Amino acid sequence: MEGVYSVPPGRRYWVVRADGGAYFNHFGFHGLVAVGHLDGIALPISEDLPASALDWADVYRQFMQKVDAEDGSLKQASSKYRQAARFATEIQLGDWVLTVTTNAVRIGVVTGDAYLSRKAIELMGLSEEPIAMPFLLRRPVEWGPTIQKDQLSSPLLRALRANQTIFNADALWDDICHALFPVFSRNEDFYFTVKIATAHKVRGIDVSNLLGFFSDLEIIGRASDVLTEYPGRFDEIFDELEASDRLTLTTEAEYHSPGEIWGLISSGIGQGFGVGGIFVLAYSMLFGNSKLGFDGVIDIETRRKLWDLVIERMKYRRVKKAVDRLDAQAPNRDVERLISHDVSSDSVENGIGNEGRSRSIED
């Protein structure tokens, strides 16, 4: 299905913050991320040096010697060493990295190995004097979208408040993807995201109708062969699927204004059209997303029948009214720079572009 992003299951996710976000714009403008953990160590850097060329045992000894000389904290020195080593050796090509400032997060993809450099990284400040980013240990990054923090889920926001300079965010991969994509898949599971943008109180009936509609879509997807021929059997088929425990839709939501709804359908992606295809159809109808489609997946007549089924359930659930009152929207981020670095060319079915490798950023 065109436009359904397939998340590589082996990809890792990292958060790197530097001086509380002081160099957020340096990172974005210069296409890198950096930490200052090795800045106080005597290192043989006359020109750019791959981090792999460092004698990390010697680096560790210098950290310990510095503790003794300055009567410092052994715990802090060990932590700084581990974080520097993690930055240089654990983060891999193709991993996604998040960096934060006071009110925003920027998401990028690691495009090269760690290195050390004394070359100046500068940006002009308000005083028209260049502000230098001094950190030596760096990695090249292709930056994708910048997202305001008030548009992120609560679990992701809580994680971003952590004090560590570098930490792994693999457990939040789905929160990160929900912030970026209207629909996506991982292995055979299908995920979708709806943003509730209204500034008014959220009516329970609107949320109930929208969630009921999503359940209807799963039923149509799992029994599309029967329902395209016998649409009047919808209630009967619902009873059968529910009784046999074959309905797998689960949702999480934040119903404040604004808020979000996240959905997961286990085994929603498989052979043929399936549940994912029905959600693609419904999303293109509700939100007019031109990147979502299924041309060539099913014949025109079957498509028309499915279209009629979806419209019937939309009317029954009063979905148009619910979407309008909730100001429900699909995420619309420019993710081309992120996904263009995926290892597999099949990561986006029928290819949402492999362009946009420039170092410019979206503000």
Rank of each mutant, 00 (worst) to 15 (best):
R139V: 07
R158P: 01
G270M: 12
A57I: 06
L249I: 12
Y81W: 14
N103Q: 04
R303F: 07
Y81F: 15
E349L: 14
K291P: 01
A162I: 01
G94T: 05
V67G: 04
I352H: 04
L286C: 14
K320W: 05
Q151L: 14
V109N: 06
R337A: 10
D346M: 07
V226P: 02
Q92V: 05
R246T: 11
S46L: 13
F27N: 02
W56I: 14
A104E: 06
Q76G: 13
R222G: 09
D113V: 04
G94E: 09
A199K: 13
D216N: 09
A114C: 14
A42L: 04
Y5R: 06
E336I: 15
I147P: 09
E188W: 00
V343R: 13
H256Y: 06
D174A: 08
E240S: 15
K201E: 08
R304L: 12
E218N: 05
G144A: 01
I352T: 07
D55G: 11
V4G: 05
M314I: 05
R303E: 14
V97E: 08
G40E: 04
S117F: 04
V319S: 00
L306F: 14
G293K: 07
L286F: 15
P155R: 12
L281K: 12
L211Y: 01
R313L: 02
A114D: 15
S257T: 03
G221S: 11
Q151V: 10
S208M: 09
A104N: 08
G288Q: 08
W14S: 05
L152F: 10
G270L: 10
V226S: 05
D299V: 11
R318D: 01
F213W: 03
R61N: 10
L292R: 06
R337L: 01
A69T: 11
H26I: 02
V15S: 04
I265Q: 02
F87N: 01
A159Y: 03
R222A: 06
L180G: 03
L32T: 03
G274F: 10
D239C: 00
S117N: 02
S347G: 13
L98R: 00
S208L: 14
Y316W: 07
A85K: 15
R186T: 11
I220Y: 06
A132S: 12
N350E: 03
D150M: 11
T198Y: 03
A169R: 00
A328K: 00
R186D: 08
I311Q: 13
D235E: 15
L157Q: 13
I196A: 03
P231R: 06
M285V: 12
F190L: 13
E312T: 07
